[in-house]
């Protein structure tokens, strides 16, 4: 029986630069230069019609928009982490990302807390964005 492992993002043509950036310790957001709007990597087309969004390094600073403390894992690979905090983080640039949160006891996390990105490589050339409470 194979040991369960946490899912690793699949690096595709569109999302690859985001995960590669995380592996290199850089949090990137999609950006429309003409509208000066930053988007999470899930967004692929600006409302103005610009499909040529560029990747721009984000400050990595943000605040907790909402959060939950997970007590029942979706996969055995997460059981050792229970209970863990998952939050939606609103970055200074306006875009939001979902991730897990470290650096704070689960029962002390609250909406509005300041966090910073700590990107981590999880497979060769592929990283994920994580956040910790400042």
């Amino acid at each position: 029986m194979t040991e369960s492992t946490k899912p690793v993002p699949s690096s595709t043509d569109a999302s690859g630069p985001f995960w590669a950036g995380c592996a290199a310790g850089v949090l990137n957001l999609r950006h429309c230069p003409s509208c000066n709007i930053s988007y999470a990597p899930t967004r692929q087309l600006c409302s103005c019609g610009n499909a040529q969004l560029s990747w721009v390094e984000a400050s990595g600073r943000g605040t907790i928009f909402s959060y939950t403390v997970v007590h029942r894992a979706p996969d055995p690979a997460f059981k050792a982490d229970l209970p863990y905090v998952i939050a939606i983080v609103e970055l200074e640039e306006g875009a939001r990302l979902l991730s897990d949160i470290g650096g704070c006891p689960a029962d002390k996390v609250c909406i509005g807390m300041a966090v910073r990105a700590i990107c981590q490589e999880v497979a060769p050339g592929i990283g994920v964005h994580r956040f910790e409470v400042i």
Partner: peptide, 12 residues
Amino acid sequence: DFEDPFGLTVPG
């Protein structure tokens, strides 16, 4: 890719 690596669940 934007939910599962972090252990998000439907109740979550």
